[in-house]
């Protein structure tokens, strides 16, 4: 099952990646190259098999560890915003958001 140029632009939009026309073409060819090695995987019968989302659950049941409800973080806004592209009054600035 090969991808079409429309698939590539749809995915690029979902991923918020601007692709120049020549990039689009190369990407299409590379993705199809990749998906050709994926086909063998799709053919395998995996009915009844539990997905292994986190590796250690192959060893035993893994249970999510929970934090106690305590405030442990202090304000360090200046430090956190050291690498921010655009800040004013402690707010991150972005182009007008239209809802």
């Amino acid at each position: 099952m090969a991808l079409s140029p429309t698939d590539v632009s749809r995915i690029a939009h979902l991923a918020r990646l601007e692709l120049q026309p020549e990039e689009q073409a190369a990407m299409l060819q590379q993705l199809n190259g990749f998906f050709s090695i994926v086909e063998q995987m799709r053919a395998v019968d995996t009915s009844g098999v539990e997905p292994l989302y986190t590796p250690l659950s192959a060893l035993s049941e893994v249970q999510l560890r929970l934090r106690e409800d305590r405030v442990t973080e202090q304000d360090q806004r200046a430090l956190n915003q050291r690498s921010a592209p655009a800040v004013e009054d402690g707010l991150f600035l972005v182009p007008q958001v239209i809802e």
């Binding site: 655009a86 004013e88 009054d89 402690g90 707010l91 991150f92 600035l93 972005v94 182009p95 007008q96 958001v97 809802e99």
Partner: peptide, 13 residues
């Protein structure tokens, strides 16, 4: 998103 005008930009808190 704070829409009150930051010279045409939106502020994020």
């Amino acid at each position: 998103s704070l829409h009150e005008d930051y010279h045409g930009l939106t502020g994020i808190d």
